[in-house]
Design a protein around this nucleic acid. Structure first.
Length: 667
RNA sequence: GCGCCCAUAGCUCAGCUGGAUAGAGCAACGGACUUCUAAUCCGUAGGUCGCAGGUUCGAAUCCUGCUGGGCGUACCA
């Protein structure tokens, strides 16, 4: 059955299937796949709907004229019922135009299908997705959004396509930050504040201790920076003492070096100033400077508190057990707002007791060896080893990650584990995967779904320290507030027909505000860095979630006005009319939803779905302008257009849902 | 030093294992609301795809070198 659906529901897959047999006669079996990959949507509508580019490639391989081969292929492939125009163009492109009645049939079938014509996969796989994974005691900030939102969307998409998915939030619930909080609690806690709002107080303690630790770190850094400035200044002097030789390439190099040295000096200076400012800010604060003086060994003490916790110190463990649920509940609040869910949340602490076993096992298998007091796994292709136990006996995140893989494999036997983590950790994962493969020697595929850095308006990475990083919660609040402003303004401009109640305004603002933030993230190719800009994201026009939500609301408005019985038009659908070019284009796009989802999973890129949805919404808007629905020239066309509206709205809502974004009935 | 990634329109970004005249969205300019929601639509303008070579019928895409930027680089996560 699933195969039947596949044949009917995915136009591209259907075309490929038609070509497969014929192409097979030209190529080795292992090449058929690559030839089929050359069949794709046409880049330009003048070339039809789909194009097959395999004849050129075959021409070279077989030393024959590509156009002849193309003609031969076209002759043999059975396309009559699918295409009404098959052309050979240019050097040997095969351009295909899909028949209107075939497109209409796609729409009709999707209308009556809860899955909107998207087939479930025939071979179901099991995925573990590791995403979000914040440190529980630190306030979440913008940097956390990508992993959370991308991971969530991939999980939704995989699930919808019929895979088994285990969503695992690998919380940082066992690290140094708890040492900080414990130290802070022991020395600075305001018990009244803690009673009223424990998480806010813990967060204050974290920031405070972090600030004090940072002060001493910066102090050390300051000397180093001074030294650096001196060295760089000397280098500049050295370089300027050199005379130009007259040799063109050498002189060019010298000039480059001078320039480079100058910018490096500038950098060092501005670094120095930044650190210096940070320090004097504390020095000038009476309370803070006193605290700094009173806790000179704070960095070391924090480490000791952490170590004590890990060693099972009664008091620290008790505090940790007290703090943890409160912190988790706080994070949960944000997940609730963002509609993010997990199947399990096994944080780092969950694996704590397995770590010594991991190291022992690595030793037993001669994978790990002692080096400079630490336990290391040396790997080919890497200059540095993966350290699994420090010289002081403490374990590291690599150890935890290995334990985690071991556990996941034993527990769920996944086919694939996806780590949605930023690209800076790619070397870590390369090592981790290399060790895990030789260690567990399992067939599980391990994959780092890396993503780029979120940059600020100046193109610099968002900073996590110094408290100046934008908290995620505040960010969401601002987005919703901004959306509310726009909704309320629109609603209050006298057009009573579309005026929304306060309650409705709030709902719309929620969907629009949160949607804007998620969409801005998902719409970028995950591998590139992107600039995070409130203004752009909350412009709520152009390529934003709002555009899609607006399309959806417009359709609902038509249904309300026309008092349309949706169930009726879905079930009774026998055909749709595609005579108008806007209708046809819309239907073609609707029929491609399954293709878009395939593209998402091809390389785990949700931006394939956002661009599909934007495309769909644009085509709907164009249709909406050109094709009256309720006022259509006759009832048959009206019904046909209502069906196109219905499928569009459902596809948009469904696609947005896979992105974790909601819709509203009216806006 | 070594490794990984990036450079596309004024700005922010797409561009799917090489395919036809490189695309969007903002911003700019010109049009369209007594007609299903103008959070919209239609149009105009805007690019030597960082530079130089190479591979081939064909390169933003693959290879080499260069320039400029980001990140990582033995006991943080």
């Amino acid at each position: 059955m699933a195969v039947e659906w596949l044949k009917f529901m995915n136009v591209l897959a259907e075309i490929k299937q038609r070509f497969a047999g014929v192409l097979g006669s030209y190529a080795e079996s292992n090449n058929v796949e690559s030839l089929l990959a050359m069949i794709k949507p046409a880049q330009d509508s003048r070339f039809g709907d789909y194009q097959a580019n395999c004849a050129m490639s075959l021409g070279k391989r077989l030393s024959r004229a590509p156009r002849d081969i193309a003609a031969e292929i076209v002759e043999k492939v059975q396309l009559d019922d699918l295409c009404d125009n098959v052309e050979i163009a240019g050097p040997g492109f095969i351009n295909l135009t899909i028949r209107d009645d075939y497109l209409a049939q796609q729409v009709v079938q999707a209308l009556a299908d809860d899955r909107l014509g998207v087939p479930a996969v025939t071979t179901e796989r099991t995925y573990v997705i590791d995403y979000s994974s914040p440190n529980v005691a630190k306030p979440m900030h913008v940097g956390h959004i990508r992993s959370t939102v991308i991971g969530d969307s991939l999980a939704r998409t995989l699930k919808f396509l019929g895979h088994q998915v285990i969503r695992d939030n690998h919380l940082g619930d066992w690290g140094t930050q708890f040492g900080m909080i414990i130290y802070g609690y022991k020395h600075f806690v305001d018990l009244d504040a803690y009673a009223v709002n424990p998480v806010a107080e813990l967060s204050r303690l974290y920031r405070l201790v972090n600030q004090l630790v940072d002060y001493y770190k910066s102090k050390l850094q300051l000397d180093l920076l001074l030294e650096q400035i001196k060295i760089r200044q000397e280098k500049i002097e050295e370089l300027s003492a050199l005379d130009l030789t007259g040799d063109e390439s050498q002189d060019k190099k010298l000039k480059k070096s001078r320039q480079r040295a100058a910018t490096q000096l500038d950098q060092a200076k501005s670094n120095y100033e930044a650190v210096d400012q940070k320090l004097s800010a504390i020095d000038n604060d009476a309370t803070l400077s006193q605290l700094v003086l009173a806790h000179p060994d704070i960095a070391k003490s924090v480490l000791l508190e952490t170590a004590a916790l890990h060693a099972g110190d009664e008091e620290n463990v008790k505090l940790w057990k007290d703090f943890l649920p409160k912190c988790r509940a706080d994070i949960q609040k944000i997940y609730g707002r963002l509609d993010i869910e997990f199947d399990v949340e096994y944080g780092e602490s969950f694996y704590h007791e397995m770590l010594s076993g991991v190291v022992q096992k690595l030793r037993d298998q001669d994978l790990a060896t002692d080096s400079k007091g630490a336990v290391c796994v040396f790997l080919e292709d890497f200059d540095t080893p993966m350290i699994v136990q420090k010289s002081d006996g403490a374990f590291l995140y690599s150890t935890t990650d290995l334990a985690t893989i071991q556990y996941r494999v034993a527990q769920w036997q996944p086919d694939e584990i996806l780590y949605v983590v930023d690209h800076r950790q790619s070397e870590h994962f390369q090592k981790l995967f290399a060790v895990a493969q030789s260690w567990i020697a399992d067939s599980v595929q391990l994959r780092h779904i890396s993503f780029g850095t979120v940059l600020d308006e100046h193109g610099r990475p968002y900073k996590t320290r110094s408290g100046s990083a934008v908290g995620l919660e505040g960010l969401l609040d601002e987005a919703v507030a901004k959306a509310l402003e726009i909704v309320s303004a629109d609603s209050g401009d006298g057009n009573s027909e579309y005026a929304l109640t306060t309650q409705q305004c709030a709902e719309v603002a929620n969907a629009v505000g949160h949607g804007a933030i998620k969409y801005a993230d998902l719409a970028h190719n995950r591998t590139s860095d992107y600039v995070f800009s409130y203004d752009k994201m909350m412009a709520l026009e152009g390529n934003t979630a709002t555009y899609m939500q607006y399309c959806y609301a417009r359709v609902q408005s038509i249904f309300r006005k026309g008092e349309v019985d949706l169930e009726q038009i879905r079930v009774t659908a026998d055909s749709v009319n595609l005579d108008h070019s806007a209708e046809r284009l819309l239907a073609l796009t609707l029929a491609r939803y399954a293709e878009a989802l395939d593209e998402v999973l091809e390389d785990y890129r949700p931006n394939q779905l956002t661009s599909y949805l934007f495309d769909l919404a644009k085509r709907f808007s164009s249709f909406f302008e050109q094709c009256p629905v309720l006022q259509a020239e006759d009832d048959a066309i009206k019904l046909s257009r209502l069906r196109l509206c219905d499928l569009t709205a459902r596809t948009i809502a469904h696609g947005l849902d896979l992105l974790g974004i909601g819709v509203v009935q009216q806006m």
